[in-house]
Design a protein around this nucleic acid. Structure first.
Lengths: 125, 125
DNA sequence: TGTAAATAGTTACAACTGTAAACGATGTCA
DNA sequence: TGACATCGTTTACAGTTGTAACTATTTACA
């Protein structure tokens, strides 16, 4: 994996793509119109840059482009998470998790899920 | 709080400052020399920018500058965490926490701590 | 008290980001 | 088949970031 670095705005675009791919440019524009104020050319520019960074690929169908992700979302999440952990929590995951647990409202079910993960982690140490 | 935005490299500097403040420029340079390849002027530039962004303040003592943080670390952590959560996990904290739990090795004690936090969260819902 | 050493300030510069206008190609309806 | 609409491409531009050389100022020793 050639060390992609996805900017803030680009993540917003990629989240849309990962959730609905393959998608045409105008579908992406339409979805993003709901959650952002970006002009269509702005979004085109980002799609372009993402292709250049090899995060996206496209094929043209007639004069439309159909976009697909080229890197897996999970891989990008891993990279971004690792860098966030290093930057803000100096690589120490426990305080990070504690921070998010304290600052979030979680449902009973989510809490149960997380307990289960903790159990698993404990079991395999 | 005037919405500070601290870059990646700047976080590295700030982590040093928060942990040892007040610190002189050369103390900061010395600490960072161990963990980075930055030339001293590079670090000076970052200190400058952080002062301009009102993340740091300094007083000059003779020809030395003594730096202190102007914003609390916890506040910066809160902001960075919120933005990371929104960007990468679309604002949904449970998958974020699950991700970090799964990808980290935690000690038995840390696991116990986290369980306690989960209990508290459950209690107050 | 002048000059070297130390320290901080100024300037620089290319890459990346956010944002979008202007331009050109393609397809479609009359 | 020509004019308009649609879509993609190119160009633009200011702000931020990473990185650091160069310059000016202060201090302290000789």
């Amino acid at each position: 994996m050639p060390q992609v670095s996805i900017s803030d705005a680009e993540w917003q675009v990629m989240n849309v793509v990962w959730e609905g791919q393959p998608l045409t440019a105008q579908e992406i524009v339409a979805k993003l119109a709901q959650e952002s104020e970006w002009a269509p050319p702005t979004i085109k520019t980002m799609l372009h840059r993402l292709v250049k960074k090899q995060v996206l690929t496209y094929e043209s169908q007639g004069n439309r482009y159909v976009y697909r992700s080229f890197v897996r979302r999970s891989e990008c999440i891993r990279q971004a998470s690792r860098s966030f952990l290093a930057r803000v929590f100096e690589g120490d995951p426990a305080p990070l998790v504690a921070h998010f647990l304290r600052s979030s409202k979680l449902s009973a079910q989510e809490i149960a899920e997380l307990r289960k993960i903790l159990d698993e982690q404990e079991a395999q140490s």
